[in-house]
Design a protein around this nucleic acid. Sequence first.
DNA 1: AATGAATGAGTCTTCATTCAT
DNA 2: TATGAATGAAGACTCATTCAT
Lengths: 242, 242, 242, 242
Amino acid sequence: MKHCTRQDTPRWERRKEDRPQEILCAAVQVFGEKGFACAKLEEVAKKAGVSKGTVYLYYPNKEELLKSVVREYVSPIVNTVRAEQSQQQNQSCAAQIEHAIWQWWQKYGSTELSAITKLILNESASFPELGRFFYEEVIRAWWIYLQEILDKGVKSGEFSPIDTEYAAKVLCSPLVTLAVWKRSMDVCCDTHTDPQRYIKAHVQWCFMGCNPKHPPNRNHTARFGRIWPYPRQTPAKAPHGL
Amino acid sequence: MKHCTRQDTPRWERRKEDRPQEILCAAVQVFGEKGFACAKLEEVAKKAGVSKGTVYLYYPNKEELLKSVVREYVSPIVNTVRAEQSQQQNQSCAAQIEHAIWQWWQKYGSTELSAITKLILNESASFPELGRFFYEEVIRAWWIYLQEILDKGVKSGEFSPIDTEYAAKVLCSPLVTLAVWKRSMDVCCDTHTDPQRYIKAHVQWCFMGCNPKHPPNRNHTARFGRIWPYPRQTPAKAPHGL
Amino acid sequence: MKHCTRQDTPRWERRKEDRPQEILCAAVQVFGEKGFACAKLEEVAKKAGVSKGTVYLYYPNKEELLKSVVREYVSPIVNTVRAEQSQQQNQSCAAQIEHAIWQWWQKYGSTELSAITKLILNESASFPELGRFFYEEVIRAWWIYLQEILDKGVKSGEFSPIDTEYAAKVLCSPLVTLAVWKRSMDVCCDTHTDPQRYIKAHVQWCFMGCNPKHPPNRNHTARFGRIWPYPRQTPAKAPHGL
Amino acid sequence: MKHCTRQDTPRWERRKEDRPQEILCAAVQVFGEKGFACAKLEEVAKKAGVSKGTVYLYYPNKEELLKSVVREYVSPIVNTVRAEQSQQQNQSCAAQIEHAIWQWWQKYGSTELSAITKLILNESASFPELGRFFYEEVIRAWWIYLQEILDKGVKSGEFSPIDTEYAAKVLCSPLVTLAVWKRSMDVCCDTHTDPQRYIKAHVQWCFMGCNPKHPPNRNHTARFGRIWPYPRQTPAKAPHGL
DNA sequence: AATGAATGAGTCTTCATTCAT
DNA sequence: TATGAATGAAGACTCATTCAT
């Protein structure tokens, strides 16, 4: 004989298996929307349907929660892409580059996860450890992956001899910009950047740039000498001088 | 008893009018480094050489300070952009592109002004009118400028026929990324990105990409169909959907 | 299907009765080390080899656990004290004193039991009944024991005429301090107090102090008149009164 | 013409000079009553008549607040006593010892400050840094001071040759015990320990112990061999074995 | 006008206690 | 019984904002 009191709706459930994923999933959303500093663990908890304390049961603190998000969701992506690629070694390096770019978009850039990149770029100066972690765990992995393909292409003669290390960085930057852009300008303006078209333009650019008949003199750039870091101005100076 | 005539304390006389500028100058640095949430008004005050209270004398609160910073700093950027657009008309389009890139870095990217770009990208989701204004006044102007050169080059046959609108966006993105990067990753990691080398790689990329013998099939990309914005996931769902 | 008869799992049968003891044993260590406030029930549980919930099965809350610890652990102390008191009657009083001191250390001070003394001194202000019980059953018994020896020695002329009641208290204090010290300062500093050497110094002190040729004038102390409790100071007062 | 509105009772006063002392004074009381872990900075603030934030204006955190109490009020005491003593170098060492003991009581033991000693002994295992700090700052200073006098006395022949290092420790312990006692047993029992009488007994003990005609054989102690640390018992063992 | 001392709401984190399993 | 996942009240600490000076 069972009394049908409130006991039928228990105050909480025991779901050890699912909790971590639920919390991580909520964390992606909250971190993505608010950034690291402004994200409230209480909001993460609420979104995950648990109490504040439960979050700490699975992740020792805010920073580790974010790191876990990265480790769990973001880091594996390069390896996945790499693994898929390795089954197609007979493709041209150009095809491999293109594939990597589209995969990046499909698996990361187009998802909620790419908000992490925006977050890191925003806050790594304030939370250096986070910046270092993301750099080591994610950014470098992508750079290395792309540079390997470029190196292979240069070695085989498929590509021109280029500064592959920096070319890999340049190669990534439109993707990063696109992800940030979708979460900044496209939110407040009526720009509606079309990712497909953007990436197509990027891919085309990758393989031929604008393809001029007479590329400018390579030494042209020697004229420009200012180097980073530029001198800081003292606050008392007029800001126009900046 | 001390006489406070104009002659005796000329420095103090100007002070009153300079204060707002000094504060804004400090604020752009702090906001640029820390983002809105992590920026401390105390740090702004210290950098500006005034007390915390003085900041509130000129700006009613943190949000208004941010808005003032952006409003104030957009003008020099606009001027910088405009100044670029009128020069080098007689050169080849390729040379004009390259010149624009280097000028962007020299006049803008390498200066404090580029902190504003980082700031805007950070905060435009939270402060839409700021984003809109910056987009209209600065970004679009710059895009149009580049697109005009590209269009001219395509029209004259100097360049291949490309999607000039989006190519202009892609063309900008490494510059934006570089400026943001110097203010984020390079601060916390030992990456020490070399702007000269980065821009050289970018310029080379612009004109020939990696220049493969057999560029991949253009239709390849049709396989990728996911479009933005993707549906939000509810926390209970499997995170693989991320 | 597993048969759980007595023969098959003899160890498990006893478990149920041992649990409270195991928990108390763990608790005395943790309370002794950390004090009531800083002791974590989780640490107690782990040390006892049970789960947090099990502790609550036997003790309704932290406070009752502490009380049980003291109740349970005080008895052995009392017995230890009593056992000491009946021996060595035929020796000189000095020898009896010395013997008592060493026995105290060997049977009590050097064992886990002395953690209880530290605990009681910590918490008796918050849990008066605990303090009272420990005082009546243990401390007073020990004092009386020592005082009896001192009285006998004074009466027989072996000792000088002294204030035996307070001398007994003074006589105890280095022992208490040593036990507390080993559990506090020696844990965090590199002091490594040597108990043997400490007790030797104490014993020597007991029988001759520093043995000066000209002890100071006994009436000297009349100059010092402040008595306990001194008046509490209000915060606004000058702190020099402290 | 002044309107007598609420403005007559301003929400707060600006009292930069007095705040630190008021806060420290409140801190002594709260730390003394509650111990380090249980002391709430909010209570300190309330007692000092300020808000929570104000405490942090002057002391960066709880630990530094306590350290400041020690540095400001406790540490100077030895030096004061030392300085006073140095004006009486012609006194016997015995008189100097006695003077130090009474000064300790008058300047520290009888005041609210001596609760710090209890606190440290209680919590230095949980807050090792605090323990180390207090040891270095206070305890060692007293030990050194007393040992110096003892050494001088031994050297001059006024005292017997003794283990002055450990004798100094033994010499301190009744004072420590007294201070702890007044704040533990005397609070919950009707013991009402008389400090004057206690210290008199201690002083007498210092100079002659119980002064037996036939001190026990010094080698007697060789029989006792157990040394610290004794072996920890496993929780499963019967606690009587402790 | 300028200062910076003072405030207190807000957030991370801990842990005694509860309770579904 | 026993477990340990889940809770939520409580406390340290921060910082935008106020306001006495």
